[in-house]
Design a binder for these strands. Structure first.
Length: 201
DNA sequence: CCCTGATTCGC
DNA sequence: GCGAATCAGG
C-alpha cells in the first residue's frame, strides 16, 4: 500500500479528529499504526500531546485546529472522495442533558464503530440464573461506563442501562480473550444449552 | 497486559 | 519517503 492522495486525506482527517494511529491504520488497511505515525510526522502534523513519548487516546484534546497552515489559493482538485456523506442522523432529542460525565464528544461526523462484534441483546432476566444475575449486578458497579465510540476489540461490549436514556453505557472491562465480553458477562451471555434447559420451566 | 505516540535507522 | 523496531509513557 502506498500513500495515495486519498489515503493521506483520510489520515489527515482522522488524525485531526483525534483518532488514534491504530484506529487510522485499521481504517486504511494495509498499514500498521507505525506507518501511520511515521507518515503523520513526515507530514508535519504531529504534536498532539504536550509531552514526548506519550499520548492519551482520543479523549481530552481541545478542538485544536492545528492544520490550516497553508490554504490553497485556487483550485479544489478534490471533487468527490466517495459516496457516503449524507448522514441520515436526525437531531437526537436530548431531553435530559443530565450528563454527569464530560464525555468528550468527538467532532467526528462519520462515526466509525470500532466494535468488531455484534452487540448482544439485553437478556431477559428470567432466563438467567440468580447467581449470574448477581455477579452481573456486581460487575455493573465496576463497569467503566464506556460510550459506544470508546469500545475496542478488548473492551466488554455488554450494554448497561436503557439506550433511550442517558443512563446507557457499555461495561468496558477487559474482555475474555476471544470473547466480546468480560468474564462476568461471558458467563451470562454464553450459557450451555443444557443449563438453560434445566432452568427453563 | 493493554494501549498511546515518538524516534531511529536501514531500506 | 517509508515503516519495523524500538523507546517511553499511561
Amino acid at each position: 500500500m502506498s500513500w495515495t492522495d486519498e489515503r493521506v486525506e483520510i489520515l489527515k482527517k482522522m488524525w485531526g479528529e483525534g483518532q488514534s494511529a491504530s484506529q487510522i491504520a485499521k481504517e486504511l488497511g494495509g498499514v500498521t499504526r507505525n506507518a501511520v505515525i511515521g507518515k503523520v510526522h513526515r507530514l508535519g502534523l504531529s504534536n498532539r500531546t504536550g509531552g514526548g513519548g506519550t499520548a492519551k487516546p482520543a479523549a481530552k484534546e481541545k478542538p485544536a485546529a492545528k492544520p490550516a497552515a497553508k490554504a490553497k489559493p485556487a483550485a479544489a482538485p478534490k471533487p468527490a472522495p466517495a459516496a457516503a456523506a449524507a448522514a441520515p442522523q436526525a437531531e437526537k432529542p436530548a431531553p435530559k442533558p443530565a450528563a454527569p460525565e464530560k464525555v468528550a464528544a468527538t467532532p467526528a461526523r462519520k462515526q466509525i464503530i470500532p466494535a468488531g462484534q455484534p452487540l448482544p441483546p439485553q437478556p431477559s432476566a428470567n432466563e438467567i440464573s440468580p447467581e449470574a444475575l448477581e455477579s452481573v449486578r456486581q460487575v455493573e458497579k465496576k463497569a467503566k461506563k464506556l460510550s459506544l465510540m470508546e469500545l475496542t476489540e478488548r473492551t466488554c461490549k455488554w450494554p448497561i442501562g436503557d439506550p433511550a436514556t442517558e443512563e446507557f453505557w457499555f461495561c468496558g472491562l477487559a474482555v475474555q480473550p476471544g470473547k466480546p465480553y468480560c468474564e462476568a458477562h461471558v458467563g451470562v451471555a454464553f450459557q450451555p444449552m443444557s443449563s438453560r434447559r434445566d432452568r427453563r420451566r
